[in-house]
């Protein structure tokens, strides 16, 4: 504070040169207190209830829980999308007889799709058999 002041201000000091009539403040205080208008004052409970204090935190927790649930539901939907099989995967699965029967029993896939998948599986089986035969021949040649 002292370093902030200039030489001029140090010379003048803190007296601004203003004065007030004698007993001004005592008279003012009395007059002011007596002339206060009528106002309605509502009593307030100084201490907030436990719920009032915890309410914002409860609301925030509920909000986060809601967001978490929404994310869960959203993830569930994307997961179920991932379980859809490609035609090739179905065909490979169908090549195993027990799987094919189970799939036919439980699947909502149309009959045409099942027949086509089954035919595909037979085609792939033949390919596998042919390639294994040719490999066997090559081994014999070696």
């Amino acid at each position: 504070m002292k370093q902030e002041e200039s030489d001029i201000l140090k010379q003048i000091g803190k007296d601004a040169g203003f004065k007030v009539p004698e007993n001004f403040f005592a008279e003012f205080n009395q007059k002011m207190s007596d002339s206060l208008p009528q106002v309605e004052i509502t009593r307030v409970d100084e201490r907030p209830t436990l719920w009032t204090r915890l309410r914002p935190y409860a609301y925030m927790a509920a909000m986060f829980a809601g967001i978490w649930c929404m994310m869960k539901v959203f993830n569930g939907l994307t997961e179920s999308n991932k379980t859809e099989l490609t035609a090739k995967e179905i065909a490979a699965g169908m090549s195993i007889e027990s799987n094919a029967e189970e799939f036919i029993m439980n699947s909502s896939v149309s009959d045409v799709d099942i027949i086509m998948s089954y035919e595909d599986s037979l085609y792939y089986d033949n390919l596998i058999i042919e390639s294994s035969n040719s490999n066997g021949n090559n081994e014999e040649l070696l």
């Binding site: 010379q11 003048i12 007296d15 601004a16 040169g17 203003f18 004065k19 007030v20 009539p21």
Partner: peptide, 10 residues
């Protein structure tokens, strides 16, 4: 009348 400062205060 309620200001009694000198020239510098003024």
């Amino acid at each position: 009348p309620w200001f009694d400062g000198d020239a510098t205060q003024l």
